[in-house]
Nucleic acid binder design. Structure first.
Lengths: 337, 337
DNA sequence: CTCCGGACCTAAACCGGTTTAGTGCGGTGA
DNA sequence: TCACCGCACTAAACCGGTTTAGGTCCGGAG
């Protein structure tokens, strides 16, 4: 009385199991009437082909993998994963593919190797791209299809999918410039990660484009703690900035607290901006000016592209909505010295 | 030149494939010397059994599922999932099981049914338990092993694994009582979720135990926005509370901002507490008094229990570390009226 | 010397699908 | 009339493991 198999359907419908298989997969060689009958029996018996057997037969895993690097704190710290995964899933489940999630210790290297060797997945998604990341090469070597989720790489070394965060940062800096700021500092993500580095570069470029001298910046790691420390460092400078552009909302939030703790009013004495526009940012005091991106759309796009890669079909061109500046009350003109 | 199969190993080692299978699984009936030779060949060829084939042969999926209910905002809002998943994974990967993640639209019903019908997983983890949750019954009906991750249910209706959050809330309330508060309000999670309801009950019980009249409470949904609205509602009362116990840190953070926005000083005029102790809480102004639980340990325990259930072995008794009150600066004696 | 039993190993069935190679049959063109 | 073709369908191989049912060989008991 367990799950019916294709044999049960075949017997019940009075045909061979190949006929059932053909009927199910809309392949020619089955008379319309027969096909109808087969499908009806399948439906009556509540039969769906077993992904296990199918996976073995077609030599496909019918699953894709997502490896996240360990430290749960830096589980991309912000709300990235939940939204991204939910975007992935909508597309994957539509195509009968499962999403395998693995959490890697420090060397995700072994995780990918195992994934490839065991054939548990047909492809993987690579997130949190690092500078000179060895993973694309590793995956190419392993022959495992992959999609790298990251802002476009200027050097074109890696083919990525994702929204460029530079315009968002540029918009932030231009907004601050427009308010009259000239000493705009930056608290960056790790220089080892591309989204840490690209946001920093965008900030520097925007300042340069405005003809301003290079601003101060401190490298942090996207965590609240590091944002807090970086903020202290900047405010301790002989000539402290009048605005700080943070590489994410978590650090900006910590920065808000540090400023307040030092008796500075935001935005009166100091303007603060974040990135990601997490839900909480609208409910801070003051509400945080930030940059929003549609991460769910990233997930959908990444999944679509990966499936196309796996099946060898042409990946449909996707247009990701650009990052969007969200103005709130944490920015204002600099204090009149 | 693709992956070697068991046949390649058998041929190379000059034995039958059953011998290889026996050797691999440490089963009797193969001479030590032969076993050694087989394993050596396997190693040389870089062979590992294919989970796909194995899954079909043993009629097991070698995977477990985690279904999260849709709204990414409420992806348990806090840092629960990242930590929980990372705990799950350590145990699962040790046992060669994969973690399948699915994001359900509103009716996770269908998701579970599909999961069971297709046999993609051997068991599932149920989180975000609702009051009168239909899922345990559904899963029992489907014959799908499952572990419910939630605080212990007082009525014993469902067998759960997880830390009781009541002692944590009680500790918070007692801490506030000790400081001299008597008007202690609560912003709860949805009354439809057990951890919303159980935290609320714990708060009410603690007040009652202290001989105080029932306090004011407002139902929210764990999101920052709802926390903000609830806080306004409480502070608008004719006799506003001097302390607010929030059911999570996200809402407490929003509450902190609301209080500040209304000119109240925290903790001078109002004490505020959270729950979960997310990373950011230590970096707010003021740093948030909260309750920390070891969610990674939950994950490990849940995975261990589920695997035992699947294999029909005795689940080892686990001792989860109790919730821990983390005192910071958001609580202080009430203002002297 | 025969018989029995255990240790070691193999052949073959099986899991539940997909896919390839045929088979039988009615219809068409030469 | 017959060769040939295409259509509908079936039988059997295959994916890569596990598992069951033997089959040998050898040593020891009777």
């Amino acid at each position: 009385m367990s799950r019916p198999s294709i044999n049960d359907v075949a017997r019940e419908a009075g045909v061979s199991k190949s006929a059932v298989s053909f009927a199910l997969n809309d392949r020619p060689g089955v008379a319309p009437e027969t096909r109808r009958r087969i499908l009806e029996v399948a439906d009556r018996l509540g039969w769906t082909p077993s992904p296990r057997a199918r996976a073995l037969a077609v030599s496909r895993a019918l699953a894709v993998g997502l490896v996240v690097a360990r430290p749960p704190e830096i589980f991309r710290a912000d709300a990235f994963f939940p939204a991204f995964i939910s975007g992935l899933e909508t597309v994957l489940s539509e195509h009968g593919h499962a999403l395998l999630l693995m959490v890697a210790e420090h060397d995700d290297d072994q995780t990918y190797r195992t994934l490839a060797r065991e054939g548990r997945v047909d492809g993987v998604l690579v997130t949190d791209l690092r500078v000179n990341d060895p993973r694309p090469a590793l995956l190419a070597e392993l022959g495992l299809p992959s999609v790298v989720v990251a802002p476009p790489q200027p050097d074109g070394s890696v083919d990525t999918i994702g929204v460029d965060d530079a315009p968002g940062i540029r918009a932030v800096v231009e907004h601050l410039l427009g308010l009259g700021h000239t000493r705009i500092a930056h608290v960056s993500g790790p220089g080892t990660m591309v989204h840490g580095r690209s946001r920093r570069a965008a900030w520097a470029d925007a300042l340069a484009a405005a003809g301003l001298p290079a601003g101060d910046s401190v490298e942090a790691d996207f965590s609240a703690r590091s944002g807090s420390e970086a903020t202290h460092a900047l405010l301790d400078l002989p000539v402290p900035p009048t605005a700080i552009v943070y590489a994410n909302d978590l650090m900006a939030t910590a920065g808000l607290s540090v400023a307040g703790g030092r008796g500075l009013s935001v935005p009166g004495d100091l303007s603060v901006t974040g990135f990601d526009d997490i839900e909480m940012s609208a409910h801070l005091r003051p509400p945080l000016t930030s940059v929003a991106t549609d991460v769910v759309a990233w997930g959908r796009a990444a999944a679509t592209r990966l499936l196309a890669l796996i099946h060898g079909t042409e990946p449909p061109a996707v247009e990701l909505p650009p990052a969007r500046l969200v103005l709130r009350d944490s920015t204002a003109p600099p204090p009149v010295s």
